[in-house]
Amino acid sequence: MLYAVLCYNDENAVGAWTREEDDACMARLAVVQDGMAAKNRMGPVARLLPTTSATTLRKSVGEPLVIDGPFAETKEQLLGFYMADCETLDEALDFARDLAKANPGPGSYEIRPVRIYRPSRMKVVD
């Protein structure tokens, strides 16, 4: 079963990391991902820019409304996600536990089974 692991945290706090802290955390998370990749289980991974850079298109009766935001009404924001192929929920939870160990502190991982998955059809130039 394919799972999406959605990362929620306070973007103010994550934004306050120094570059060294950020790099170190990303390096620890990369090790966890490499472990999954070695088992051929690691899908796409994305880290999102802050919500201040986001725009929302709200569907409505007529023309959809384009607004800034989402505004951080909640304490935690969606900061990124992992896709992983796991046999069971326990396996997906283990993956999330490893991520949490690599990136301790507040925040949460939402483990969400995936219903439709279409592999990428674009060429990403980094």
């Binding site: 306070d10 103010n12 706090a13 994550v14 934004g15 306050a16 990391w17 802290e21 301790p104 502190g105 507040p106």
Partner: peptide, 15 residues
């Protein structure tokens, strides 16, 4: 469990 690094980050974010 609680890590000094994230406490530091939390304090500067809250400042």
């Amino acid at each position: 469990m609680a890590d000094i690094r994230w406490i530091d980050a939390a304090l500067s974010a809250a400042r």
